[in-house]
Design a protein around this nucleic acid. Structure first.
Length: 271
DNA sequence: AATTCCACCAACCGCACCCGG
DNA sequence: CCCGGGTGCGGTTGGTGGAAT
């Protein structure tokens, strides 16, 4: 049994008072952000350290941009969500002055509904096949875009998907061709996962769907050089570690340098 | 005017990751 | 390499205020 992050007895919960806010602001101005565990005691707050951190990050930080989201911010969130899934902190990292909590709340309260109203499934950014939408898409030749291969970016999460349930983190981009080529076999042939291979076959051109965000990505992740240099075939653990490494670098690249930087990094083989 | 419903969002909770000993 | 503490993240909850009835 894991110990609680702090002694819950004798700590306040719920909404913060102005006095508590001021104590937290004063303390951080004086000493900076540091050890959240000891901060409440040092600052004279009857709060859990995690609560202090959250209050500071989501509400009190001076560089926060409050107020409504601009249209370009909305677009960016939708595009990044299509690429990254529910990785709110990464998405928020591309939106100066916005927090992950704010982006998450905005997504759940506004953008989800907006996409649904546009006939787009907010979970996977695919067009919802429904007869009532026919008036919106009159073309008989309309094709539902294929599922993404970016689902490799899916990582373990707190939410344990039930049988048959789509994992929550599954990145949702539908108009993005991406082959993740993690390991070469003995003959030097690329092994492409079944999932990636099938989606390559199914991949539909971006132009097939005018409503989806056009990520215009055509990505190839190659075997990392340190594995190419190996004489023997890597074992399962190494393969898993390499995959995980890829996933992290791709996601971190998106967060740090934007989509263009991500595409560039992948193309030049940095990850 | 009173009550119910609903949307929004701040805050909490639990888990996973990171890192130092 | 292992373990445990600290931190960050994402899902969920619950309080609040405005709209609808």
């Amino acid at each position: 049994m894991r110990k609680p992050c702090c002694d819950k007895q004798g700590t306040n919960k719920g909404a913060w008072s102005k006095q508590e806010d001021q104590k937290l602001i004063d303390y951080i101005r004086k000493y900076g952000e540091g050890c959240w565990r000891t901060l409440p005691k040092d600052a004279g707050l009857l709060r859990c350290g995690k609560s202090c951190r959250l209050r500071w990050i989501n509400y009190l930080r001076p560089d926060l941009k409050r107020g409504n989201f601009a249209e370009d911010e909305e677009d960016l969130i939708i595009k990044l969500h299509a690429l990254l899934g529910n990785r709110w902190s990464l998405i928020a990292g591309r939106l100066p002055g916005r927090t992950d909590n704010e982006v998450k709340n905005y997504w759940n309260s506004h953008l989800r509904r907006k996409l649904i109203n546009q006939g787009i499934d907010p979970n996977n950014h695919k067009i919802i096949r429904h007869t009532s939408l026919h008036h919106q898409y009159p073309s008989q030749n309309y094709q539902v875009p294929a599922a993404t291969t970016l689902s490799h970016l899916h990582r373990s999460s707190n939410h344990k998907p039930q049988k048959g349930e789509e994992p929550n983190y599954k990145p949702a981009a539908t108009n993005c061709n991406m082959i993740i080529n993690t390991v070469d076999d003995d003959a030097g042939q690329a092994i492409i996962s079944e999932e990636a291979a099938s989606s390559v076959e199914e991949a539909a051109p971006c132009s097939s769907c005018p409503l989806l965000p056009d990520l215009n990505l055509d990505l190839m992740i190659c075997t990392p050089s340190h594995l190419l240099g190996q004489k023997s075939k890597p074992n399962d653990n190494e393969v898993a570690a390499t995959k995980d490494h890829h996933q992290r670098q791709v996601v971190e690249a998106a967060a740090a340098g934007g989509l263009q930087a991500l595409v560039h990094m992948i193309k030049i083989g940095l990850c």
